[in-house]
Design a protein around this nucleic acid. Structure first.
Length: 571
RNA sequence: CGGAGUGUAGCGCAGCCUGGCUAGCGCACCUGUUUUGGGUACAGGUGGUCGGGGGUUCGAAUCCCUCCACUCCGACCA
């Protein structure tokens, strides 16, 4: 490809609304342009990268025995009503009506459609297991699209769905997909981790998310320093410090803490550390008998609402008690609640239960208690894991400690079980000629998001540095003064033809631009291998080579150049 | 949905508070000259419903009302 025939839409300036580096570079390098909120056009250069991503995924999915299909973007409401998600999905589901006023939606995902297909096409257990995938456009009406294609409303996803006669078969395919995802992201040269994940509203049991590690990531992931434990922070089990609870050393005392509204205020006033205090949160209870339930956490910890909602005593979704309920249950303002003397159910976090001689609210506005001890002063009641893990917590598997890093979720695999197959009545005849509901798995990869994630991990101050497997062009040719030197022009044209004939993706910068402009553009768009041809080099019989990641270039004798370059491309 | 902010040329912005001639600057783009191994320099030029509508005024980019779009923070969603 010659730049004179290619839309090289590079810009010098960064658009004001691009917050993160990948978004800025995708616009500056001319990969995408915004059409409206969360909607992007892929320019020729960006589309080349997108296709590389798609092809890697396609090859690996095919290799894993999955079959490619293509389902419609527009889906009939009836199917969604049948699964119950027409009501459940909420405003993210964009609903539309056709000219006959029939209801449809733009597909945010395709469990309903694929399950409908399977129930019609697959009749016998002998046809199982099957795994179908597509690479297709999804629409989710995100409340707040952001970061360019990282969280857009319309995006491309690879979604795969597998169907099985039993759990064991599902688990086997799940493992195949788990391994396939590793190969896919490895081929893309990404630094990623598979982490245990919450199954969310889709439901089911086993689930892993695949995260590309990047500081700009929207998700927090908890890792062990020593083992391969990794989980989404929302899901990671928080364990108490090891060893027995220290023995009480202080006498219980009440102190005045006027005008303190937060743990920080109290700590500053009493000169104690937040981890030596506990905070008590009142939330709505699950049953009439206990309309309010107390959650007790260490002052430096945060409540995890997903964990709390799984407790039988607490209403889901977790809802904080209002001021009136707090007065009624504790007899004070929200800032002075404590477990001592409470008559409502109390649920104590494991780490809070491990404290001795702690500080807590006195259930009397403007007062706290110091030197409080479990058992001696107050019964701990139910102890449970109700907080988010923090850095330095012991790893739940007993090896090492938790560290927290940020990640971009680029893949998610689920064991769905029979959630959709039973709702849509998808069954086959088993060996005993009896109808048996199918087991189902689903496996997603955010294709457009992967492009952004790859940039987050591969860039410098000059622009993108594409991993070899994702680069829109493998090689670029930058001629010096080609428009004045027939000798340079001849060498460069020949080189371009030779490389093209070998099936190498070459970008030949044939613009009549200054060298600096061409160098800067090629670095901005991140082409891995650069060839420079100029009078200066040709006088010595040399052609210049530089890798995008190298500090400086090297001169290679003209005669050896092709072999040298091929070696670089393969190597 | 709540809070904050921004809409002026393709992009980045100034002008608005304190109303006043033909609305400016940088980049990009076009023409010419120049330059040519890291975003040359000079000259000339194209391009504007100042987000839309309404109002106040002799006069509105500027003040007022209203609608719209977008961005950020939060909530929601997963």
């Amino acid at each position: 490809m010659k730049t004179s025939q290619f839309l090289l839409a590079t810009t010098r300036e960064t658009p004001a609304d691009a917050e993160i580096i990948s978004h800025q570079l995708m616009i500056r390098a001319g990969l995408i342009r915004r059409l409206a909120g969360g909607l992007y056009t892929w320019l020729p250069l960006g589309l080349r990268v997108l296709r590389k991503v798609e092809n890697i995924i396609r090859q690996e999915m095919d290799k894993a025995g999955a079959q490619e299909v293509l389902m419609p973007v527009v889906q009939p409401a009836e199917l969604w009503q049948e699964s119950g998600r027409w009501q459940e999905y909420g405003a993210e589901l964009l609903r539309i009506n056709d000219r006959h006023n029939r209801e449809f939606c733009l597909g945010p995902t395709h469990e309903e459609v694929i399950t409908d297909l399977i129930r019609k096409e697959i009749r016998s257990y002998k046809q199982l297991p099957v795994n179908f995938y597509q690479i297709q456009t999804k629409f989710r009406d995100e409340i707040r699209p952001r970061f360019g294609v990282m969280r857009s409303r319309e995006f491309i996803m690879k979604d795969a769905y597998s169907f099985h006669i039993d759990r064991a078969s599902l688990e086997a395919t799940y493992q195949v997909m788990y391994d396939t995802y590793h190969r896919i992201f490895e081929r893309m040269g990404l630094n990623f981790r598979a982490v245990q994940a919450d199954t969310g509203s889709i439901g089911g049991d086993g689930s892993h998310e695949f995260h590309v590690l990047a500081d700009s990531g929207e998700d927090a992931i908890a890792f062990s320093t020593e083992s391969n434990f990794a989980a989404n922070v929302e899901l990671a089990e928080a364990v108490a410090p090891s060893g027995a609870r220290p023995a009480p050393g202080l006498v219980l005392a009440e102190v005045a803490t006027p005008k303190t509204h937060s743990i920080e205020d109290v700590c500053a006033l009493l000169k104690v550390e937040a981890k030596q205090t506990i905070k008590t949160l009142l939330v709505q209870g699950a049953d009439q008998a206990s309309p309010v339930v107390a959650l007790v956490l260490r002052g430096d910890h945060e409540v995890n609402d997903i964990k709390v909602e799984k407790l039988a005593q607490v209403a889901s979704p977790m809802t904080f008690a209002n001021a009136e309920q707090i007065q009624q249950a504790a007899g004070c303002d929200a800032g002075s609640i404590g477990p001592v003397g409470l008559t409502i159910p109390v649920i104590v976090d494991r780490s809070a239960a491990h404290l001795s001689d702690f500080v807590c609210g006195a259930n009397k506005t403007g007062y706290h208690l110091t030197g409080v001890n479990w058992e001696r002063d107050v019964q701990p009641g139910l102890v449970a894991d109700i907080r988010n893990v923090v850095e330095g917590d012991p790893s739940p598997d007993g090896h090492g400690f938790i560290q927290i890093r940020r990640g971009i979720e680029v893949g998610h695999i689920f064991q769905l079980g029979d959630k959709y197959s039973s709702a849509l009545n998808a069954n086959v005849l088993n060996e005993n000629s009896r109808a048996q509901t199918l087991e189902m798995g689903c496996y997603g990869i955010g294709v457009t998001r992967l492009v952004a994630a790859a940039i987050e991990q591969n860039h410098d101050d000059k622009g993108v540095i594409w991993p070899e497997s994702l680069a829109p062009f493998q090689v670029c040719i930058v001629p010096m003064q080609m428009h004045k030197s027939p000798r340079v022009k001849e060498v460069v044209e020949q080189l371009y033809q030779d490389l093209s004939a070998k099936g190498i993706d070459v970008l030949f910068d044939d613009r009549n631009e200054r060298p600096g402009v061409m160098f800067n553009d090629m670095e901005l768009i991140g082409i891995p291998h650069r060839i420079v041809v100029g009078e200066r080099g040709l006088d010595d019989g040399m052609i210049e080579y530089k890798n995008r990641r190298d500090e400086s270039s090297q001169n290679i004798p003209q005669a050896d150049f092709m072999a040298f370059l091929i070696d670089k491309l393969v190597g």
